[in-house]
């Protein structure tokens, strides 16, 4: 059983804070707490204890934030901009190397995996 918030199904026995932070891209624990304070959801509330108006309020508040696809698009655009203006960071992204001065002789596996011009597929 899941509770659908912002088009995403969150497991019913998750606490609201953890459920939001784990499920919605762009929301961490701090943002989740802030959202809960705004909507007046109590800190230890579980997903299945949310009422219908509270879910609607949460949806409304989340829709005002930069999350999910829009955020991913923004990150892609930012990387693309760096590459287009010919910055070193952009080139490093293009080659799939670490951007912030890390070594490349060994390691750098995370950079090889993540650093691309199109970081997120949309």
């Amino acid at each position: 059983m899941g509770v659908v918030v912002f088009g995403k199904s969150i497991k019913h026995n998750f606490s609201v804070k953890v459920g939001l932070a784990k499920t919605i891209f762009g929301i961490g624990y701090d943002t989740a707490e802030r959202l809960m304070a705004k909507v007046k959801i109590y800190p230890q509330c579980k997903m299945n204890q949310l009422t219908e108006p509270q879910i609607m309020d949460l949806n409304r508040e989340i829709s005002q934030l930069l999350v999910e696809g829009h955020l991913k698009q923004k990150i892609n655009n930012d990387i693309k901009l760096k590459k287009d203006i010919g910055s070193i960071a952009g080139m490093r992204h293009y080659y799939g190397f670490p951007v912030r001065g890390q070594r490349t002789c060994t390691n750098a596996s995370t950079a090889r995996r993540l650093n691309k011009v199109n970081r997120y597929r949309l």
Partner: peptide, 8 residues
């Protein structure tokens, strides 16, 4: 307390 006001 653990409770937060709307202005956090």
């Amino acid at each position: 307390t653990q409770y937060k006001s709307p202005d956090f």
